[in-house]
């Protein structure tokens, strides 16, 4: 009985810790890298993204170091964007030679939706120094419009 209670308590704690770390990069008011020492968590959130609204377009910044540029793939559909690619493991390193392995390797894919419909045909992307910058223009009907106010007396 006691044993089961302890197990439940442990499980609850680990779930809470999990939630804390998953949402935790922003406490303290400064964005943080999620810890690489928590198995799975860092892998699940690769790559990290920033999204900015520039009025006419969205700017998506993707932190993706060490990705083979040929493997990068961006697909867009109405208001959603998927970024996928592959990060290769260090070449020529045998498992027994590794002293430290904090950088994960493998295929990744991340999808997210944007607040409005976008112009799928005019998306542009550039990969430089491990940063992927994606310029996503909003669809014509979603762009901000200034409305003239008519004055009548």
């Amino acid at each position: 009985m006691l044993f089961r209670e302890m197990m439940q308590e442990g499980e609850r704690l680990s779930r809470q810790m999990d939630q804390l770390f998953r949402s935790g990069y922003n406490f303290g008011g400064f964005p943080r890298f999620r810890s690489a020492s928590l198995p799975g968590l860092s892998v699940r959130t690769y790559p990290l993204i920033n999204i900015r609204d520039e009025g006419e377009a969205y700017k998506v910044e993707v932190l993706a170091p060490g990705v083979n540029p040929d493997s990068l793939n961006i697909t867009a559909n109405r208001d959603s964007l998927t970024i996928s690619g592959e990060r290769s493991a260090p070449e020529g390193a045998l498992p027994e030679q590794l002293n430290r392995a904090e950088r994960s390797a493998g295929k990744f894919s991340r999808s997210f939706s944007l607040p409005t419909v976008v112009d799928v045909n005019r998306i542009e992307a550039e990969y430089k120094n491990g940063l992927l910058q994606v310029h996503v223009p909003k669809a014509e009907e979603a762009r901000p419009r200034s409305i003239a106010v008519a004055i009548t007396n």
């Binding site: 932190l63 170091p65 260090p90 390193a93 590794l98 002293n99 491990g130 940063l131």
Partner: peptide, 17 residues
């Protein structure tokens, strides 16, 4: 990532941007 061979150490570090 750090790995070791007879010739020396190789260090790979992620420094995006």
């Amino acid at each position: 990532d750090i790995y070791e061979s007879e010739e020396g150490l190789t260090v790979l570090a992620d420094v995006p941007g």
